[in-house]
Amino acid sequence: MRALRGPAALAAAGALALAGCGAGGTAPAESGNGAGGSLTVFAAASLQQVFTELAGAFEQQHPGTDVVLNFAGSSDLATQITAGAPADVFAAADTRTMDQLAAASLLAGEPEEFASNTLTIVVPPDNPAGIDSFADLAEPGTAVVVCAPQVPCGAAAEKAAAAAGTTLQPASEEASVTDVLGKVSSGEADAGLVYITDARNAAGRVTAVPFAEAAAAVNTYPIAAVDGSGQQQLAAEFIDLVTGGTGRQVLSAAGFGLP
């Protein structure tokens, strides 16, 4: 009578474990194990479009070279590099994560700042709450979604709010820009704070409402070669590409500011 209960419970427990595997988590991308002509670049998620384009250009300039890209949140990437992930170049979305690696002596050279990004308000295309300034975000009953202060976009949102002299009462403090965009584009939130480049990528699903106070919260993007990389030469050339003319052109086309 009870013979089947055990297996049934086990099956359910097994399914529990399987379902658990689906939850979040960023796996490190396949590593290029440094084999001749392969350059592994770890870059902040917001650089995905730009760096994919630049990696293509780099491969064209260096026939036989394979650029392996790994995109994730800057602090995730820093954690992976600290844990020994095989990166040759690291490009972060803020100076804080880069400073952490520098302090741990994991960089091969001085980080170079190559881009900047500024916050913007995003609203659903029909702008249901009629948002057209930063002060509107503080109106009671407005569902505003921001990044949590622990992540770079959230720290920037706090700075912008301080500059505007308002305190936001967010409905939610998300862990990433993507989650903020998702809440706004689905119409769950009346407004959100993301970077200009994110808003541009999501054009059509959200409308950007620029605000003056954003100038107080500009994020700088540093890039550096990682210590112990077997591709110092290629790494230096890739960094030159990003900080040089081609890089500047691609970055500004995507909405990034230039240092």
């Binding site: 939850a23 979040g24 403090e173 998300e174 862990a175 809440k183």
Partner: peptide, 21 residues
């Protein structure tokens, strides 16, 4: 089992409910 699964819920909550202390 349901309680344990609910306790570990992450993805659906993040996507649907948001995140506020």
């Amino acid at each position: 089992l349901a309680f344990a699964r609910a306790l570990g819920e992450f993805g659906a909550t993040l996507t649907f409910a948001g995140s506020l202390q």
